[in-house]
Amino acid sequence: MASYSTNEFRSGMKLMIDGDPCAIVENEVVKPGKGQAFNRIKIRNLKTGRVVERTYKSGESVEAADVMDTELQYLYNDGEQWHFMHPETFEQMAADKTAVGDAHLWLKEQDVCTVTLWNGNPLAVTPPNFVVLKVTDTDPGLKGDTSGGGGKPATLETGAVVQVPLFVAIGEDLKIDTRNGKYVSRAKD
């Protein structure tokens, strides 16, 4: 199994810690003027998203996690699993609820998502930063109000509920920033 020495540690590196794949968020050398050096790292557990701290004696090695990101096209949800396809090899892959998490709110068929694989299996799904989704329900808009001041909730085709300006009406396509779940604008075309 591949492993990394503490002197190779850097942000983003994927390690196996307590049997779970984790990513280094921050690496800091703790070295007293005279005395043993340590690497103190902040790591994100890629399964749970929790961030914890760990300390290693400098020079030690830690097992690498076989984690890689792939760009896959979202196909459909069969009620239990979300199905994706590699756009070139057409290889299909299914992700369960744990892997998809909150990303299901932004998954639109045909969109290309980042699917993080651990030992070849989906571990996490990251939607595109911006998605275009249709409004399926919202209160009637106020005619002529384009000020954007104030707002109201709108339900989108994926089931996500976002705050939108008062002028938005049912059937419109909206551009949403998936990183914060916020309305950006009406879709251009």
Binding site: P32, G35, F38, T55, K57
Partner: peptide
């Protein structure tokens, strides 16, 4: 929360340095 960072048969000063650099300093 620093169990397992060092082996159990190391020089006493290594334990003191670890406690010092992580908790006291």
């Amino acid at each position: 929360g620093l169990a397992g960072v060092l082996d159990e048969n190391e020089d006493k000063d290594r334990y003191l340095e670890l406690l010092f650099s992580h908790v006291i300093e």
